[in-house]
Simulated assay, not measured.
Amino acid sequence: MPSPKNSDAEAAAEKTRLSRQVVLAAALELVDAEGLDALTMRRLGQQLNRDPMSLYRYAANRAALLDGVSELVFDELSIHPKDPDWQAQLRYIAHDLRLLALRHPNVVPLLVTRPLSTPLGLRPLGTLRPLEQILSLLIDAGFAPADALHMYRAYYGFLYGHILNELQEFIVDPDENEALLRLGLHRLPPKDFPQLRALGPVLADYDGAAELDQGIDILLSGLAAHLSRVPESTREPAQG
């Protein structure tokens, strides 16, 4: 029977077995807990109880770490590009992305803004897969490839806008029943912000999932209407 000392040594050895997946998972855990600014090689080394220099084997620099974290989060997004019900699939993806953002709110700015500084072909492959899969979904549904790209942009533009808006829905005093006080709107000058103050009860009852559904309803109706105006003879053939 191994002694407790040996067991401790074996446990320590087990902890030191690093892989890219282990390093990125620890990086994501660090960002979730402390924010993006906390993610440095030195801090990650402390998190993993390893010399920071040993981590460069798995990520060349902090930028590579950020890209890896983005890919890891996008891996949690479930997309089925061969689903024949493209509207149901887009609705499902929207809600899945919202929940993913609520699980990792500190990562959302990274997902939204980091791609803007990187040419499309140089972005991590894992961050491009949702684009490829949704394009396939829309093209298989009958949209022309160029139309599918425009619709992807509109779809993700709406989703990211909704997510950023929901993450900013702060409640000042959750125990306060009066909407104006709960949201801190009583501090706004009544003459300058009459509409915002009047909407206090609606703002206080904000339901992110329901709000998302309302927006998706409008978006999907527009996409379906666009597809219905395309003559059958010019639609992209469905892929078998």
Rank of each mutant, 00 (worst) to 15 (best):
Pro81Ile: 01
Thr113Ala: 13
Leu111Ala: 10
Arg129Asn: 14
Ala141Val: 12
Ser136Leu: 13
Ala94Pro: 05
Leu116Glu: 10
Asp85Ala: 07
Leu125Asn: 09
Leu120Gly: 06
Tyr92Val: 02
His104Asp: 09
Leu72Gly: 00
Gly68Tyr: 07
Ile79Lys: 02
Glu76His: 11
Ser117Met: 14
Phe143Trp: 14
Tyr152Arg: 05
Trp86Leu: 01
Glu76Tyr: 07
Leu116Val: 10
Leu116Gly: 01
Ile134Asn: 00
Ser70Ile: 06
Ala101Trp: 01
Leu111Gly: 03
Lys82Glu: 13
Asp140Ile: 01
Asp96Asn: 14
Ile134Ala: 00
Pro130Gly: 04
Ala148His: 10
Asn106Met: 14
Ala141Gln: 08
Ala144Ile: 05
Ala141Tyr: 05
His150Gln: 12
Leu99His: 14
Pro115Val: 07
Thr118His: 03
Pro81Asn: 01
Tyr152Ser: 01
Gln87Val: 06
Val69Thr: 09
Val112Thr: 13
Pro119Val: 01
Gly126Val: 03
Arg114Met: 11
Arg91Asn: 05
Ala144Met: 08
Pro81Cys: 04
Leu131Pro: 04
Leu138Trp: 09
Ala144Arg: 12
Thr118Ala: 06
His95Cys: 04
Ala101Lys: 07
Leu77Ala: 01
Leu102Lys: 13
Leu100Pro: 10
Asp147Ile: 11
Arg123His: 03
Leu131Thr: 11
Val108Ile: 14
Val112Leu: 02
Phe143Met: 03
Asp83Gln: 15
Ser117Asp: 14
Val73His: 05
Gln87Glu: 12
Leu125Pro: 04
Trp86Ser: 01
Pro115Gly: 09
Val73Ser: 03
Ser70His: 05
Gln89Pro: 02
Val69Lys: 08
Leu111Met: 15
Arg103Leu: 04
Glu71Gln: 13
Pro124Cys: 06
Arg98Val: 08
Ile139Asp: 04
Arg103Asn: 10
Pro124Met: 07
Glu132Arg: 15
Pro145Met: 05
Leu128Met: 15
Asn106His: 15
Asp96Tyr: 05
Ser70Glu: 14
Asp67Ala: 12
Val107Asn: 02
Pro109Lys: 03
Leu128Ser: 10
Pro115Tyr: 12
His150Ile: 04
Tyr152Phe: 11
Leu90Trp: 07
Phe74Ser: 01
Arg103Val: 01
Leu100Arg: 11
Asp140Lys: 12
Ala141Ile: 13
Gly126Phe: 09
Arg114Thr: 10
Thr113Asp: 13
Gln89Val: 00
Leu100Trp: 05
Gly142Gln: 09
Phe143Lys: 08
Thr118Pro: 02
His150Arg: 12
Met151Ser: 09
His104Leu: 11
Ser78Gln: 11
Leu99Gln: 15
Ala146Thr: 15
Ile79Phe: 03
Tyr92Lys: 15
Tyr92Phe: 12
Leu110Glu: 04
Leu128Lys: 13
Ser78Ile: 10
Asp140Trp: 14
Val108Glu: 07
Leu131Phe: 15
Ala141Gly: 04
Pro145Leu: 07
Ala148Arg: 02
Leu110Lys: 08
Ile134Arg: 05
Leu135Phe: 09
Ser70Pro: 03
Leu149Glu: 08
Ser117Ile: 09
Ser70Met: 14
Trp86Gly: 00
